[in-house]
Design a protein around this nucleic acid. Structure first.
Lengths: 400, 400
DNA sequence: TAATTAAGTCAAGCGAATTGACTTAATAGG
DNA sequence: CCTATTAAGTCAATTCGCTTGACTTAATTA
């Protein structure tokens, strides 16, 4: 009856959706609680013992869970705890940065199995794509040499790169214009035969924090990422939030005051790019990371000057994030050396008053996340894992 | 095995969840598309014709949908469109404001069936609760006089009041401290026998925009509400987002610059409270609404002065909202007279540059929502309707 | 040693979507 | 004008995953 405008509707579901959801719920429960008996799982998920038994049997056959030794505890029959099998699934994560590309393979619980990195030509995406594909190929072969059946257990390729995506061509110097035009995701999908997903750096950080870090099991968390640019990764209702066009959280582009077009974006004052500029360093320089770490440890006055100013802006960013999202916690992550990140964290205190300043809190208002330089690549890899195994609304529906 | 710390897990689902979801999907499809044949529904939801037929038959028996006359169109058997029955469900909405309380009954499609209002004693919540209960009773009896079976079709009571909720006791003059302590929701639940839900003003506005306004069928929208205070109602992934403690979107409390504790909250500069102060008006004054409307129409210079300053701050708020949420559209709503809201909207242009400034847009960056003073009460009532009938993840699970 | 408690299995049942053939009723085309 | 085609919708049988309730197993407690 409507042949012109398509009918808008969510898709329905059926028993397959039910079963898919319940499997995911089991996996999440084991991920969050370590090891559980089938009786525990039944209580926690409100399913019957029988249903849980069947699902666990399935998962065991699929190599995603294993039984541990039976445990005697109090009266009643001893229970058999089950735990996730890390090598039950793998995913590849790819971080594309301005001067470097990193590739990792992670397993079901987010542990890094293999890694590789290489420099990228800034202005030649098709040559860059070849390099990337060869890196992917390398880690993939390494994985295959370590685990039988690894190819069958590879659930996807996650890509993380600096956002925002899909804007009108911009002369913004943070961007890599040549790459913006290049059909990277399609090239990678074709070249690897894997499902490919895309996130920005901060989203990948948040995904990493959720799978292995401070946001593990937290349903409302915001990950403030200070890298070459600045952005926030948003975990809302237990899922990464992407916004209407995949650019949610790009707070680096937020103007710092109501004053108008003349005022400065946050990114120009508090990002590492601004630090490099402040120090007169070349971001492409070799050994930059170690150098920064040393300067931070030594509390170099010029670094401290930047830290003070950046911390003031970041403190206010945390205030805004708390006011707008009401998260359970804010996680500060950075591609900077840990010593520098700690300086920033310290300088951000005391935090500004906000609605997060509640009488009782289970989690700190602000905490330091991982500062491992490989975290973004891990987060990139965690995305396909999450897509494949975490409970989510879209997993129940018949179609995306 | 875990007797100390409770096991964290999402609940599972079963055929009931499947069926509940599919019913909701049908209702949403009819809400968004007007009237659809069973074949249309089957295509749109990806369910089989047979499944749809069964569900529609159920819904028809429950009085939620009706068949229209068969329509001949092209080859094939004529189809029978179905549409929602507005009187298939009702909900009561309650707006508690500082000087006034409004109660409405709305039907399944968000139309107001009955309304009532009264003043409230600011410092005597238990006397206030009695007044509220009598208002609810009045509209409930009016509803019963209009529709048979109305009690059976009443799905809940939604409450909207100024947030934020649950903070440490505060001397903030916008708050109503005596009310913060009072167990209002419990009193209302006990007094009405209905399910009771709570939202802040802005969330209610967003809910109203979603059911009958500019956010109808839009999955990512932010509703910027300028009332006595200022807040944002967040529609993310098609659902209202509440945050970790139900206070998401309370941007009125956002400080306007990184400068520190001395800087001003948005609410002190751009809310109607600030306008009243600017004009030396008493917010409790009778006829204030009309007076403001007249001043706005006359473009009174003192009003225009406030409009300019407020618009500058609100323009920046829109910039922040766009940068942080990447919504499809931002909707400006207000409890002010429409003329004043239009002045504000106008003065907010041109908008600041942001990631929302994309080459192709389906929806405007900023649009005016409803300025009906009853909108918040309608949004309050829409919440139980949405909870009962909209597709959502939590509706599939076995428990909340 | 018997009663109690709890984990887990067995087998039948149920319910909602699926499947595929069938009916109905219209238009398009020769 | 008649037949082929197209599409809506029904019928009846099937499938599949969860539920139910009884039962088994194996520990602790009294």
């Amino acid at each position: 009856m409507h042949d012109i405008s398509p009918i808008r509707a969510k898709s329905g579901t059926n028993q397959e959706g039910t079963s898919a959801h319940n499997r995911r719920v089991m996996i999440e429960a084991l991920r969050l609680n370590g090891a559980l008996s089938r009786a525990d799982l039944a209580r926690a998920t409100q399913l019957t013992k029988q249903a849980v038994s069947n699902i666990v049997e399935d998962l065991e056959r699929d190599g995603l869970v294993v039984a541990l030794d039976a445990v005697r505890k109090g009266r009643g029959q001893p229970f058999t705890p089950y735990r996730l099998v890390p090598e039950g699934a793998f995913a590849i994560g790819l971080q594309i940065d301005r001067h470097l590309t990193r590739v990792v393979v992670v397993d079901l619980v987010g542990k890094v199995i293999a890694r590789a990195e290489a420099g990228l030509p800034l202005d030649e995406p098709s040559a860059g794509a070849k390099i990337i594909l060869s890196l992917v190929d390398r880690v993939r072969r390494e994985l295959a040499s370590l685990f039988a059946q690894s190819e069958r257990r590879l659930v996807g390729l996650g890509v993380a790169m600096p956002g925002p995506f899909g804007l009108r061509e911009s002369d913004d110097k943070w961007m890599m214009p040549a790459w913006q035009q290049f059909p990277l995701l399609e090239t990678l999908a074709a070249g690897t035969g894997l499902n490919v997903g895309l996130q920005n750096d901060a989203a990948a950080c948040a995904t990493a924090e959720r799978i292995v870090g401070a946001a593990h099991g937290v349903d409302h968390a915001v990950c403030l990422y200070v890298g070459y640019g600045i952005a926030a990764g948003l975990i809302l209702n237990g899922e990464l939030y992407n916004g209407g066009n995949g650019n949610a959280g790009e707070i680096g582009r937020a103007l710092l005051s109501p004053a108008g077009p003349g005022s400065t974006p946050l990114e120009h004052r508090a990002s590492l790019a601004s630090l490099y500029q402040h120090l007169g360093l070349d971001p492409a320089e070799r050994g930059l990371y170690e150098k920064l770490g040393a300067l931070a440890l030594a509390q170099d006055p010029r670094v401290m000057g930047w830290v003070e100013r950046a911390a003031s802006d970041l403190r206010w960013s945390v205030h805004l994030i708390e006011t707008i999202f009401d998260p359970q916690t804010v996680i500060l992550t950075s591609s900077a050396p840990e010593a520098l990140a700690r300086l920033l964290l310290q300088a951000m205190h005391p935090l500004l008053p906000s609605i997060a300043d509640r009488p009782v809190r289970r989690l700190p208002r602000l905490q330091l996340g991982t500062t491992d330089p490989w975290a973004i690549a891990v987060g990139a890899a965690a995305e396909p894992i999450s897509r494949a195994f975490d409970p989510r609304f879209s997993a129940i529906l018949k179609a995306g």
